[in-house]
Computed example of a mutant assay.
Amino acid sequence: MTSQITMVLPLPPELRSARLSALASVAVHLRDLGAARVAVDQALADPDAAHDLLGSTARIAGLSPAHEAEPEDGDHVLTTLAACCHPALPEAARIALMLTTAAGLPVPDTAGAFSVPDDTMAQRIAWAENRARGALGAAIPEREAESHLGRVLDVLLLIFDDGIVHPNYSVDLPREALETARAVVQLFPDEQEPKALLALMLLTRARRDARLDDDGSLRALSRQDRSLWRQDEIQEGLFLLRGSQRDGRTGPYQIRASIQAAHVTAHEARDTDWNRLLALHDRLMQVSPSDAVALGRACAVAEVHGPETALESVERLGLDNHLFHATRAELLRRLDRTEEADRAWSAAVARVRSATEHQRLRGELER
């Protein structure tokens, strides 16, 4: 089932969290993401219903008043978000469900983000919503809540990062992911990793006006005009990062946000504390190792121990994706191995997914 109602975007932050809370309560009771989404969109279409979104949504969905606000409703949001991000769903389906369910994008906007026809996206969403039904039937045990929330945050970051790489989409995906993360922070105020994810997004997005050259290629951090960085977003990100560290626990998003913080708090590129960045990357490799983290670490190694040492660590990875070849090319360039660097850049460009990404790889890695 898909909604035919066109919503006015962007939703204000307070309505995003209210919408998600109402949708989650109805979805769990009906065990149907699609029907819940239609009910919420219909309720939002009536300005007079916005002040009682949960009650009006429940009435539209045909629930009795007793179902409108039960004691366990706080758990419904995590159950619903976890259903959208269930590991049995393909990655593209998880992203589409998060955009329509959590971010509140109409189906046509989600279709635009994927560059597919509206009818095609409606069919894909209906299929994914049907597959997610089973995950709506049982509450998430407390011992598993952290891992489920972590998967939700991972999908939000996928959406954010994809929008950074492809900035010409008809939808501002980084903003949608960021504002959805803000709603998650509001709905899970005692959890630290959502705050850290929101901090990471703010610290990254704050550089958007300085990130690209006139031809659309990436401009390295060392060459960015830091006066164009948005200080209000940086300060909010730093505030959230500090808040995420208050209980003494360390999660992967706290470390990743700390890496971004080390970059944006350097007044000039030469002031960057690369020893701290290397230590943070080492910690991230312990907490949440991945090939992408290892490649990021190599850039810090290059600054602390030299590009030759970094190149050795990169080549030991033996990968074959565009980021691997682009990182290798940059290190070879720094070693004046020009012909090898050119071949590595060609390999990187050959492995990108789109013309936009091809254009941006004419530039540099943003490290």
Results as ranks from 00 to 15, higher is better:
Arg207Pro: 05
Ala43Gly: 12
Ala266Tyr: 14
Ile255Asn: 07
Ala183Asp: 01
Leu323Gly: 00
Arg297Val: 05
Val314Trp: 01
Arg316Asn: 15
Arg182Gly: 14
Gly237Met: 05
Val314Gly: 01
Pro71Phe: 04
Asp213Thr: 10
Gln254Lys: 08
Leu15Glu: 11
Ala45Thr: 06
Arg133His: 09
Leu78Cys: 03
Ile164Trp: 12
Gly318Gln: 10
Asp232Tyr: 03
Arg360Asn: 03
Pro189Gln: 07
Cys84Met: 06
Thr110Ala: 15
Glu303Pro: 01
Asp41His: 13
Val155Met: 06
Gln123Lys: 13
Leu44Tyr: 04
Ala269Asp: 09
Val155Trp: 03
Val185Ser: 03
Glu268Gly: 04
Gln235Val: 10
Ala210Met: 08
Ala113Val: 03
Ala326Pro: 00
Arg223Thr: 11
Pro189His: 07
Gln224Cys: 11
Ala257Tyr: 00
Arg297His: 12
Thr79Trp: 05
Leu178Asp: 02
Gln260Lys: 05
Ser147Gly: 07
Gln245Asp: 13
Glu233Ile: 03
Thr100Tyr: 04
Thr180Cys: 11
Val165Ser: 11
Gly112Trp: 03
Glu142Cys: 06
Thr180His: 10
Phe239Gln: 12
Gln123Trp: 10
Ser170Leu: 12
Ala58Gly: 15
Asp273Pro: 06
Gln123Ser: 09
Pro289Asn: 12
Arg353Trp: 00
Ala122Val: 02
Ala347Asp: 15
Arg360Gly: 04
Glu330Tyr: 07
Val185Tyr: 01
Leu157Val: 14
Ala279Ser: 13
Leu153Asn: 01
Ala61Cys: 11
Asp214Val: 08
Arg143Pro: 00
Thr250Tyr: 05
Gln254Pro: 01
Gln4Leu: 08
Pro106Ala: 08
Leu78Gly: 02
Leu157Asn: 15
Leu202Ser: 10
Leu33Arg: 00
Glu308Trp: 07
Leu241Pro: 03
Ile234Met: 01
Asp336Thr: 07
Pro90Leu: 11
Pro117Tyr: 14
Leu63Gln: 08
Ala18Trp: 00
Ala102Gln: 04
Arg337Tyr: 08
Arg16Trp: 04
Leu335Thr: 02
Asp118Met: 07
His305Met: 01
Leu319Asp: 05
Pro189Glu: 07
Thr204Phe: 02
Glu339Gln: 11
Arg276Asp: 10
Asp161Phe: 15
Gln42Phe: 11
Pro289Gln: 11
Arg256Cys: 06
Arg19Leu: 04
Met98Asp: 05
Glu364Ser: 07
Glu176Trp: 04
Asp75Tyr: 06
Asp273Tyr: 06
Glu179Leu: 13
Val28His: 02
Leu136Gln: 11
Leu277Lys: 10
Ala135Met: 11
Ala344His: 04
Val301Ser: 00
Val165Tyr: 12
Ala348Thr: 00
Gly243His: 05
Thr110Lys: 02
Asp214Thr: 13
Ala88Phe: 13
Met201Lys: 09
Arg219Leu: 13
Asp118Thr: 14
Leu153Phe: 00
Glu68Arg: 00
Leu221His: 09
Thr101Asn: 07
Met285Thr: 14
Ser222Gln: 05
Glu70Asp: 11
Arg205Met: 05
Gln235Asn: 15
Glu303Tyr: 06
Leu202Glu: 12
Val116Phe: 09
Ala113Gln: 03
Ala199Asn: 02
Ala88Ser: 13
Arg37Ser: 12
